[in-house]
Structures are given as C-alpha cells and as structure tokens.
C-alpha cells in the first residue's frame, strides 16, 4: 500500500517566527518577526514597486503608468460615486486598503511551492482582517462624530420612520451598525481561508489518488486536478472581489459618516 500523503490543509496557515526573533517584545507583548510579517513586508515592497512604476508622471502614459493610474482612477471613481466630492480625501486610505488586500491575496496564490518557498496569505487570519476592519470602522466613527456630533445617532433612525417605531428601529439599526466591522473582517478572512483550504484538500486528493494506482489516479486524481485548475482561476477572481468588497463597503460606511442619510 502506498503511503498516504501527509497533507494538512490547515498547516499552511501556521505562523512561524523566524529564528532569533521569537523573543522580541515591546512592553511585554511578543512581536516576533513571523512568516506572516514577512509577507506583509513583501506585499508592501511589491506594491511600492508597482506604484513607483506609475510615478514617471508622463503626459502620455506608458503601460505601467496606465495600469497604476487606472487603479487610482478606479478608487477615485468609486469614492466619487459612493460618497461624492468629499470622498476624494479618502482616496489614499481606500487605495492603500484595496491594493494592500489585493496584493496580499494575489501574492498568497503564487505557486511558489514549486520552488520550495511557501507563500503565506496573511489575509486568511482574522487578527489581520480584524485590525483592518477596526481601522475602517474607527474612521467611520471618528468622521461621523467629528462632523455631526451627537446628531450622528440619527443614522440609526432611517428617514420617515414613524415615531412609534423608533424605539424598535433604533436598536436594530444600532446592532446592524455594530456588526459591520465583524462582517467586514470575517468576510475576507473566510473567503481567503476557504479557497486555500479547498485547494489544499483537492491537492491531497490528487496526491493520494495518484499514489493509490492508475485506476484511482484516473477516477479521483485527474478530475480533482482539473477542478483545481478551475478553482485556481476562481481564487484569483475571489482575491480581486474580496479586496473590492472590502474597499467598497468601507467607502459605503464612510459615506454614512460623511452624509448621514
């Protein structure tokens, strides 16, 4: 009997500190430089290189400049459509958010396992997506209370609500508002983790099926492999969509804070 492959679909999410950094601490909190932190750094560098390519500031843009400008234009249009003219000042934040998540998702999908390096998708950790969601939510709260003061609470009473309904509507709206950061964080984390787990499970089917002989290789291994190819394409799509959804919802929430109703 062939030896069963030791594919643990969850192993890819393990955080491993680099040797010598396990003990790093600030005020008693461990800040070891982990593989997760490394990929955050790689994401930053890749994004920096990408945007630097668009900094030639030519009047007639080349392809690279065009690509960068189409991303900034995309975020600019999205904020203009959802928030309006005041939305332009959030372009740096939403652009950073969108591109950081997008690059992280895409870099995590790179087939670097072929050369022995293991990409790490830090957006599949809710500690990370949670922090990003909290930052977005904090911006909404700060902007909302800064601009509207306590009037911001009228966000929880939709316009035209009959007054007897207000005591019922208010808590419902409040809860739906407070749930936002969790839904924002969980959506990205779950989507990224599910995709990576699915790919890993299918890859274990391919390996185990092939090891079990030609028959099982054809019946299980081959279809799983074909499915993997399709799901890889789907995952690239999901990487883009989740980054877009995160940025879009952030801008919608910011719109609530900017314009109330």
């Amino acid at each position: 009997m062939a030896q069963p492959a030791k594919v643990d679909p969850m192993y890819q999410f393990t955080i491993k500190p680099f040797a010598g950094t396990e003990g790093w601490e600030i005020a008693g909190y461990n800040i070891a430089f982990t593989n997760s932190a490394l990929w955050m750094g790689i994401t930053f560098v890749a994004l920096l290189v990408f945007v630097l390519g668009g900094m030639k500031r030519e009047l007639v843009p080349g392809r690279w400049q065009m690509a960068v400008e189409s991303f900034t234009g995309f975020i600019d249009d999205m904020l203009e459509a959802n928030v309006g003219k005041e939305g332009r000042k959030y372009v740096p934040y939403i652009f950073s958010l969108f591109m950081f998540i997008l690059f992280a998702n895409l870099l995590g999908l790179l087939p670097l396992g072929l050369v022995g390096v293991h990409p790490f998708t830090f957006t599949s950790h809710f500690t990370v997506t949670g922090v990003l969601a909290i930052i977005s939510f904090a911006i909404v709260l700060i902007v909302g209370f800064w601009k509207h003061g306590f009037h911001f609470f009228s966000l929880f009473v939709p316009q035209g609500t009959p007054w007897p309904m207000i005591p019922i509507i208010f808590p419902i709206e409040l809860v739906s508002f407070l749930v936002r950061p969790f839904s924002l964080a969980l959506r990205l984390f779950v989507a990224m983790m599910a995709g990576h787990v699915l790919l890993e499970v299918l890859s274990s089917f391919v390996i185990d099926g092939t090891n079990a002989g030609a028959l099982w290789g054809t019946v299980v291994g081959l279809p799983s492999f074909l499915l993997m190819i399709g799901i890889c394409a789907l995952e690239i799509l999901v990487a883009g969509i989740q980054a877009y959804v995160f940025a879009l919802l952030s801008s919608l929430y910011i719109n609530d804070a900017e314009n109330l109703h």
């Binding site: 955080i15 500190p17 800040i31 430089f33 932190a37 955050m40 900094m55 740096p92 500690t127």
Partner: peptide, 24 residues
C-alpha cells in the same frame, strides 16, 4: 500581538508612503 504590530507597521508604511505620498 506580533500580527497586529507588524500589520500596523506595514499597513502604515503602505498608507503613509504609497497612499499619502505617491497616490496624490
């Protein structure tokens, strides 16, 4: 703690260097 720390570092870099510095 390490996740949050490094995320804040690198996302901060992205925001201040790329978002604030280069995107405008």
């Amino acid at each position: 703690s390490s996740q949050i720390f490094w995320l804040l570092i690198f996302f901060g870099l992205v925001f201040f260097v790329i978002g604030r510095g280069m995107v405008p």
